[in-house]
């Protein structure tokens, strides 16, 4: 039996592509790469507004629907180079989609070599995405990843030159598809054909790098630090709280609700943080290297987001990771005193 690994994003296209290949009697296992930017999972665990959505990991869910194994691979460190130096540049925001696809197929190719699988499948469709899924980009991904003709895109294979699995007769090309363009109609027809009742709605993209606000926060962090290096905690924190940067050397991350408070609590050992003592108010982390004076301003800003915002005096506790707690009594800033440009 021939074996394929399928890049499972959790979306509909990879589900359908995999189904087509399973139906041809191929043993398929799924692979999913965790870059740290994936929409999958995260903030739904933090924010209340997302609580209504069922907390499930769509890649796992798709694998279970398909009855296949799923290997989730942590590529956080290796992926940094893709985000920091994308050879093919960024899309509309900070999304390096073409480099990202090439990277993931390359990792899948390494995986099939290690695990003695025969080919790779993806749910790509020609013309579906302006940057990474065009007729011209398909061979680039195949070539730069090293996968070459062991990369099969079942949903649009008939629009592309035959690959090794087709030429060797491992799969029947006639039963593959010729989807192209942005229309979702052919996918919907296949959903009906397979009687699939539930699937994740494909949104703008599979990761936070396609999000305008997230991208702005990432650029701000890089600029303020004068370096594009990052750790997982850095990019996770960009998803949480209100970010206010009064100056290059520091910013405030202010929890907006209980879920975010709980999440930021986990960072108290690493970051200087502020708590409002005299009133009900959010936990605030300070990222950067603030001076004593900066911390006074930070306390005034944090107090603005507490229930003491109208009070003459608010008591704030400042704690550094070394646990030197200090109390300050300050007057909260008014909304007008916090310039729009400070909001990242």
């Amino acid at each position: 039996m021939y074996k394929a690994v399928s890049l499972i994003s959790g979306g509909l296209d990879s589900l359908l592509a995999t189904k087509l290949i399973i139906d041809q009697g191929i043993h398929v296992e799924g692979i999913n790469f965790y870059t740290g930017f994936c929409v999958e999972g995260h903030t739904h665990a933090i924010r209340k507004k997302d609580k209504k959505k069922e907390k499930r990991n769509n890649a796992l869910w798709v694998a279970e629907e398909l009855g296949i194994k799923l290997h989730i691979i942590n590529v956080i460190d290796e992926y940094k180079d893709v985000v920091i130096n994308p050879k093919h540049g960024y899309g509309q925001h900070m999304n390096p989609c073409l480099d990202c696809k090439g990277f993931m197929v390359k990792k899948a190719y390494e995986w099939i070599l290690e695990n003695e699988f025969d080919f790779i499948i993806t749910g790509e469709v020609i013309g579906q995405r302006p940057m990474s899924q065009r007729k011209e980009t398909m061979p680039i991904i195949a070539e730069e990843s090293g996968a070459g003709d062991r990369l099969l895109r079942p949903l649009c294979a008939k629009n592309l030159p035959p690959t090794l699995p087709e030429l060797e007769g491992w799969v029947n090309r006639d039963e593959l598809k010729d989807f192209s363009g942005r229309s979702r109609k052919p996918q919907m027809a296949l959903v009906n054909f397979y009687n699939i009742k539930d699937y994740a709605q494909p949104a703008g993209g599979c990761c936070f790098l396609t999000d305008k606000k997230y991208s702005a926060k990432l650029k701000d962090m890089w600029q303020a630090r004068g370096s594009r290096e990052y750790e997982l905690d850095d990019i996770m924190l960009l998803k949480v709280g209100r970010h206010i940067r009064p100056s290059e050397n520091y910013k405030l991350i202010i929890a907006r609700e209980e879920g975010e408070v709980n999440y930021l609590e986990g960072y108290k050992k690493q970051f200087t943080h502020l708590r409002i003592l005299s009133h009900h108010g959010p936990l605030t982390l300070i990222d950067g290297d603030p001076s004593e004076q900066d911390l006074v301003l930070a306390a005034q800003i944090a107090a603005r987001y507490s229930q003491g915002r109208q009070a003459e005096q608010v008591e704030v506790e400042i704690k550094t990771p070394e646990f030197e707690a200090k109390k300050l009594t300050i007057k909260p800033l008014s909304a007008e005193q916090i310039p729009e440009k400070w909001h990242v």
Binding site: K55, R56, N57, L60, E64, K69, G266
Partner: peptide, 17 residues
């Protein structure tokens, strides 16, 4: 763990594997 998402995800991962 502390992420409530694990109540779905770890069992799903176990069932699959």
């Amino acid at each position: 763990c502390t992420d409530p998402g694990v109540k779905n995800d770890i069992p799903a991962w176990c069932r699959i594997n």
